[in-house]
Nucleic acid binder design. Sequence first.
RNA 1: GCAGGGCUGGCAGAGUAGUUGAUGCGAUGGUCUGCAAAACCAUUUUACAGGGGUGCAAAUCCCUUGCCCUGCUCCA
Length: 476
Amino acid sequence: MIKVYNTLTRKLEEFNPINKGKIHWYHCGVTVYSRSHLGHARNLIAFDTIRRYLEYRGYEVRYVQNFTDVDDKMIVRANEEGVSIIELAEKNIQDYYEDLDRLNVKRPSLAPRALLHINHMIKDIQSLIEKGYAYVADNGDVYFDVRKWKEYGKLSKQKLENILEHTEDTENPNKRFPADFALWKAKKEGEPSWPSPWGEGRPGWHIECSTMSMTYLGETFDIHSGGQDLIFPHHENEIAQSESLTGKPFARYWLHNGFVKIDAEKMSKSIGNIININSILKSYSPDSVRLYTLLTHYRQPIDFTEEGLKQAEVTAERLFNTIVLLKSFANDEEESSVITEEDKTMIQSIEDARNKFIEAMDEDFNTSNALAAVFEISKDVNDYLRKVEKINSMVVSKANELFDEFRLVLGLFSDIDQYISIDKVKNLVNLLIDLRQEFRKSKNWEKSDRIRDTLKDSGIILEDNPKRVLWKIVAK
RNA sequence: GCAGGGCUGGCAGAGUAGUUGAUGCGAUGGUCUGCAAAACCAUUUUACAGGGGUGCAAAUCCCUUGCCCUGCUCCA
């Protein structure tokens, strides 16, 4: 049974999708006006892993993630660069996918863009006006009337009075109430605009997510996710718009991830303390970044330090070594009919590790504890491959199965195949190892070292152990 | 002010009442060993911001103080 922490109820809840076996999920994506940073990476990796886990558990996941390509930031940036917002969006979406792919984050099932849904948004705004939840101001703006929606504040647990007290926008004469938010903004000079029943203008920020999520996932869907900073006002407003429009519950489970901080401060574009994904990937592998992220539970903040990332890098490398070594035994045909006590213990450990992993992930996707299971079995495998008299092919295949599952869910080491040797190479290396062992027996260190050094130069590392010589292919 | 999150070993980071200070990194010692590399083992353990309270029992629940962060404005 999977449990998730739901921001709406502030409780751990049993997870059950509306349609058995299928999950409809909307993830709030990015405004495509600049390059993505580590905060986005954390967010993407966290939910990508959750998605992968749900798929692993047999769910079919429809994962919709939007691109905000029309809003204030887009317009300002496009003007600065002297391009249209469409051109700006194109470029940044391309960069975004590049970052996404490198981090091995699965692409969304659907990635709708706000600009292509303006007519649909207009229809929704129109309905909200007709239902009396929205009003047209004299200047052509359209606002959502928060006082009409009695449940306003239910996600962020804010009372309207408190919101009001700290709303800065008290001067706007077009609003009936300071906390009302824009569904449609009348055109200003130098801004792109679209025709509407209320004159030229453009949509407000929040409506796109309501419109697009319900278009592709239905009026009520399972999961809605995003960063914690979106809880208010963005997600609060989405709920208000959507539920007043349909009269039905909007998203059922609200998931929010914690921030990446730098020197105890949130990493954000407005503070300017950002590290871009592409720049961190110049010094660290995607696997290191993923692992670094997953070592902390997704709802906890991560105070980013290079030291921490380095630690994760070492950890990732060690784990990688285990897996690649294990893979090198995968196709060894020697069927061992005898099952020793050590084999049995290993098989049991493998089962235990899988169960522990699942148990951890079931509990609100506790990747920290899940990884603990991975590290423990990794240690057992290392021990087994080096110490046991005869390696049992069944043990190897079960272990490989397990690590394949881990890799799939955690999104780690997706490029591992390039480090696995084809049989021809394998035979060749094994021959050289045999020869070298003969030289070693006769204490011909010069020749035995020459073999080892030459192999090392071509990226093959030998490792002498009492029971056997192990080898692996490394990068470069 | 209101709402929420945090304060655990040298570092990172799980754990929300009671058979583990999980796990990772680091450090020290060891095993292995021609050398190298890797791996494994042991130690690094009477921790849980301070104070108070309720429990047979609290890091874990309640109260309180301190410090930090976040949202209430665009933001993953």
